[in-house]
């Protein structure tokens, strides 16, 4: 340890050269755990809505609990997808400018589409 070029502060913070530490890994696990019950709820809900028309879907989504769970599911799922696709891009895309472009688009795609989904739920909740 005495011969290490790393400073004591660097070792204590444990953030590494990317200054991010285990944050990405941890958030991927945290969202994964949250998605286990949320996914079962999501599939059960969709199964119960098979054949429903727009008004029945709107009525169902107007309940605070389904709306809350749907927003939690969407937010967690899109965040989890953003984290996962980021690793896939980093692993397989080696041309620097292509990689950076795809990483930016990954963020834009997940935030924009996730935002549109959550907004739709809110519109239905508040009397769409």
């Amino acid at each position: 340890m005495g011969d290490s070029l790393r400073t004591p502060l660097s070792r204590v913070t444990g953030l590494g050269s990317a200054k991010d530490g285990t944050h990405h890994w941890w958030m991927q696990r945290l969202t994964a755990i949250a998605l286990v019950p949320l996914t079962f709820w999501f599939v059960a809900s969709l199964a119960s809505l098979v054949g429903a028309d727009r008004d029945q879907v709107a009525d169902w989504m107007a309940g605070p609990l389904p709306a809350l769970l749907m927003i939690l599911f969407l937010g967690t799922a899109f965040y989890h997808f953003k984290l996962g696709l980021q690793v896939v891009i980093e692993d397989y895309v080696h041309a620097e400018w292509v990689k950076i472009t795809l990483l930016v688009l990954n963020n834009f795609f997940c935030i924009a589409l996730g935002g549109a989904c959550v907004l739709s739920v809110l519109l239905l909740l508040f009397g769409g």
Partner: peptide
Amino acid sequence: HRITGVGLGAGTLLIAWWLIAAATGPEAFD
């Protein structure tokens, strides 16, 4: 695991379409 992960990400487009259509109105939803 990776292939299904990427596929599910693409599949969110279908869920997004369904939700946005429900919020837009009966014609879009149909």
